[in-house]
């Protein structure tokens, strides 16, 4: 018997790399997912989210690097990992000619669980009881996603990996799935949630990793990454010069341009002092307000920055 010391992380990824031909889809990716966190795995389309998740689950053989889940190396102990993990990758995939219930029973049977009541209660959890006996092929996108969520809960795994679970849904459907995920997270499971839509992740995640073009841009607790509650948007004439001034101040941790505004990360208590300093330096300040959509701004900044660099390289 191997004794596994679990440590503080549910998932540890180190130097993970995947190439498709000459194209590097995931490039020396490293990040860790703390136990019990709701972890947002963010990046624009094509960033390498699905490929990374595929490698975590043994669906995509990596070209290099390691993945440890609950202390088990996926190369040596994939089945140990999979019994502790429930996942949806890309779209939820089931047999179209079988009912939702039958599809769940199949997942349960493959996982070695023969409990019919468990299947019924999962259908209830995701609100599919009424349409459980209709064929999966006739399900709406929202019902498919809900069946997917039910299937990841079979066997009560401690880690859930959900790849864009709200993609293809209307706002009401997205809201429903988010609520379901929030409820699941309350039970102490670790949830890794990939998305290119940041607003949804911001509300439910405790930690994030932002990736772009196969590379990690930033990772950490969400409050560290976005400076939650401490971001101020400042509207000012001559914003580039104002940016210089703000960057030199000790009470401003970070300052950057966002469109025509300057965004600073700072204690909200310093807002008045910042305003005064700008006015004293001869700037006209017409707006200072807290920014709520900071993750979006951070995300766009990080990913567009990476894009510019890549374009520069190409030239």
């Amino acid at each position: 018997m191997t004794v596994v010391v679990e440590g503080e992380f549910a998932v540890r990824i180190e130097d993970l790399t995947k190439r498709f031909g000459s194209f590097t889809a995931v490039d020396s990716m490293s990040f860790s997912v703390p136990h019990g966190s709701v972890f947002g795995f963010l990046g624009p389309n094509g960033a390498g989210k699905t490929t990374t998740i595929g490698m975590m689950l043994g669906l995509v053989p990596p070209d290099g690097g390691t993945v440890e889940i609950f202390g088990y190396d996926i190369r040596r102990a994939l089945s140990q990992v999979l019994t502790r993990t429930g996942a949806i990758v890309e779209q939820p995939a089931f047999y179209p000619y079988l009912s939702g219930r039958k599809n769940l029973e199949i997942v349960a049977a493959l996982r070695g669980i023969a409990d019919r009541d468990a299947v019924d209660s999962l259908l209830d959890t995701v609100g599919l009881t009424e349409r459980a006996d209709a064929n999966f092929g006739g399900y709406s996108m929202g019902m498919k996603q809900r069946l997917g969520l039910a299937s990841v809960l079979v066997g009560d795994p401690r880690l859930l990996i959900l790849d864009e679970p709200t993609s293809g849904l209307d706002p009401a459907g997205q809201r429903e799935i988010q609520n379901l995920i929030q409820n699941l997270a309350k039970t102490g499971r670790t949830v890794l949630l990939s998305s290119h839509q940041l607003n949804e992740v911001q509300e439910i995640c405790s930690h994030v990793a932002i990736i772009d073009r196969g590379k990690l841009a930033v990772t950490g607790p969400i409050s560290d990454v976005i400076g939650e509650g401490r971001a101020l948007e400042i509207g000012v004439d001559r914003p580039t010069e104002a940016l210089e001034l703000l960057r030199s101040r000790l009470d401003v941790e970070e300052a950057r341009m966002d469109g025509a505004s300057v965004v600073v990360v700072s204690d909200p208590e310093h807002a008045a002092a910042i305003n005064r300093a700008l006015v004293e330096a001869g700037f006209e300040v017409h707006l200072i307000r807290p920014r709520a959509d900071m993750l979006e701004a951070r995300f766009l900044e990080l990913t567009s920055h990476a894009r510019e660099e890549a374009t520069d390289d190409a030239v």
């Binding site: 089945s79 999979l82 047999y95 070695g112």
Partner: peptide, 14 residues
């Protein structure tokens, strides 16, 4: 084409 191979493999079938 249905993607169900993923579902089976993720359910722990080697």
């Amino acid at each position: 084409s249905w993607g169900t191979v993923r579902t089976s493999l993720m359910a722990g079938v080697s």
